Simulated assay, not measured.
Amino acid sequence: MDDNKYDGVKDVKWKQVNNGESKIKFISSRKKSNIKKIIKLISFILLAVISGGISGAYTANKKQSNTTYTPNNQTLMETKKDNKNVISNSNSQVENPVTKVAESVGPTVVGISNKADGYFGIQDTGTGSGIIIDSRGYIVTNYHVIENADRVTVKLSSGKILDASISGTDEKSDLAVIKVNAQNLPKAQLGDSSKIKIGDIAVAIGNPLGENFSGSVTAGIISALNRKIEYNGSVYKVIQTDAAINPGNSGGPLCNTNGQVIGINSFKFGSGQNTEGIGFAISINEVKSIIKQLMNGGEVAKPYLGIYGEGVTSGDNKLSGIYIQEVLKDSGAFKAGIKPTDILLELDGKKVIRLSDVSEIVNFHKIGDKIKCKILRNGNTIELEAVLYEMPEDK
C-alpha cells in the first residue's frame, strides 16, 4: 500500500454502505473543523439569547415589585431622586388652584368676636371674619359683625387672640375697619373685580358657625356679576357665587385663583331667604375708596343728589323715568332747580327708571362733581346741571 496516498487523513470513520458490504470512507479533517466552528457559533448565539431573556425577565420583575399602584387607575411616573427609582403620582405634579389660594390667603383671614356687657359680664354676641389688609394690623370686615360691640377680639390664623380697636365704620356700605396692635402681619392682596368672568373659580375663606370652624375654605364659581343689592338705602354691585357663604363667613374674602381678594363676603345680603348655592360678596372695586377712608379714621363721605320718587311710564310706553315726589333742601337737586312733580328721564347721560339707578350712577362720582340731569316738566324737556354734595349723616 502506498503510504503517501493517505497523507493528511488522521481520522477514519466506519459507515455501512452497498448492501451491507463494509468499506472504508475517509472524512476530511478540514470539513469537520468547519462544522465544529458552526456548531460553536450557533451554541453561543443560543446562549446569548437565553441569557438576555433571563436578564430582561429579572429586571422587569424587579421593577414591578418596586412599583406602588394607587386606586382609580392613576397614572404613575418614575423620577430619579438620590440615584434611586422613586414612583410618584403624576396628578400631584399639578397643584390644585384652591390649595394654592388657601395657602396664600388663609394666613391673612382672621376670626372676629363681638363682645358686649351682659348680666354675667362680657359675653360673645356674634362672630365673623376679617381680612388683614395692612401689615400694621388693619383689618376689614362687615359693619354688622362688630355692630354695638363693647369689645372686639381678633383671632389670628396662628391661634393668637388680640384685642382690637375700631378705626372706622360705615353702616350704609356694611363695612368696618378695625386694628390690632401688631406688626409685620401677612396681608391680603386686593384684586380687580372688573376682570372676573362668569364661570371663573371662586374661593371663600372664613369662620362659618364660629371659631370652631375657623379657616374653612369653600370653592365654587362666579355665578353672576353686578347684581344690584339695596342695603340701608344704598345700592351695591355684588358678586354672586355658589361657594358656600354661611353665618360667620361675613367679612371674609372671596378670592380668584391668583389669591387676590375680589370681594368681601356678606351673609347679610342673602339672609332671610331659604336658598342654597347663592352667596354674595361686595365687589372689592366698590369699596376700595371706602376702606381707605375708614383706615384713616374718618367718616365715609358719600355724594348724593337729594331726590325721592318712584318709577313711572307714559301710557304709550314711549317715555319712562322717575316721578319726583320730594327734593331735599340744600341738596344738589334743590340748588339746580329740580322740583317735585318733575320727571327725571336721564342722569349723567344714562336713562333712569328707578331710584336704585340714581344711586348707582351717583356712587360712581365724588363729592363736588357736576352731573347733568334731563327732566320732563309740563310736557317740556329741560336739561339742568347739579353739583353733588356730601350726604348728611341722617340720610
Rank of each mutant, 00 (worst) to 15 (best):
I353R: 15
E326W: 07
I322S: 12
G298V: 14
A336G: 06
K374A: 05
E299Q: 15
L384Q: 03
G379A: 00
R354I: 13
A386V: 04
E286A: 05
P303I: 11
G337D: 01
E286C: 03
I262R: 13
I291L: 10
S283T: 08
I361N: 00
I375E: 04
G337R: 03
G349S: 07
E276K: 15
K302Q: 14
I367S: 09
G315F: 06
I375A: 01
L328P: 01
A281E: 06
K366N: 15
K335M: 03
I371C: 07
K318P: 02
S266W: 01
A301C: 04
E346L: 02
I367N: 09
G259E: 06
G297M: 08
G298R: 15
D330P: 02
K372H: 06
N285P: 01
Y389K: 03
S320F: 14
L328M: 15
T341I: 12
D348T: 13
I284M: 07
D342W: 06
L344C: 09
S320P: 00
N285A: 04
Y308W: 07
T381C: 03
Y323H: 14
L305V: 10
F267D: 08
G263K: 12
A386T: 02
G379V: 09
G298K: 15
N265R: 05
L384R: 04
E360F: 03
I343R: 14
N285W: 04
F280T: 04
E383N: 10
K302N: 03
S314H: 05
L294I: 12
I284Q: 13
S271G: 06
Q293L: 07
K292M: 04
G368V: 03
Y304F: 15
G259N: 14
N285H: 03
G349Y: 00
H365A: 01
L347H: 06
E390M: 10
E346P: 04
D348G: 11
